[in-house]
Simulated scan of single mutants.
Amino acid sequence: MKRILGGLLALPFSVLAAEPLATGAAAAAPVVVAGTGVGAQLTQLVLGLLLVLGLIFALAWLLRRVQQTGARQGGQVIELISSRALGARDRLVLVQVGNEQILLGLTPGRITPLHVLKEPVPVPQGAPAATSEFAKRLMDVLGQQKDKP
Rank of each mutant, 00 (worst) to 15 (best):
M1A: 15
R3T: 06
L5N: 07
L5M: 06
L5V: 12
G6L: 00
L8Q: 04
P12W: 01
F13E: 01
V15Y: 01
V15R: 01
L16P: 04
A17N: 12
E19W: 11
E19I: 10
L21G: 11
L21F: 12
A22Q: 13
A22T: 10
T23C: 11
T23D: 14
A25R: 09
A26F: 12
A26V: 15
A28T: 14
A29C: 09
P30F: 13
V31I: 03
V31M: 04
A34P: 06
G35T: 00
T36K: 11
G37D: 02
G37M: 01
T43A: 13
T43I: 06
Q44F: 03
G48P: 01
L50W: 05
L51I: 00
L53E: 02
L59A: 14
A60C: 07
R65D: 08
V66C: 13
Q67P: 09
A71V: 09
R72I: 08
G74S: 14
G75K: 15
Q76C: 07
Q76N: 10
V77N: 10
E79T: 15
R84L: 13
D90I: 04
R91M: 10
R91V: 08
L94R: 10
L94A: 03
N99A: 13
N99R: 15
I102S: 10
L106Q: 14
P108A: 00
P108E: 03
T112N: 14
T112Y: 09
L114Y: 04
L114E: 06
K118W: 05
E119M: 13
E119H: 13
T131K: 09
S132F: 05
E133G: 11
F134Y: 07
K136G: 14
K136L: 15
M139I: 04
L142C: 09
Q144M: 05
Q144N: 05
K146W: 05
D147M: 15
P149L: 10
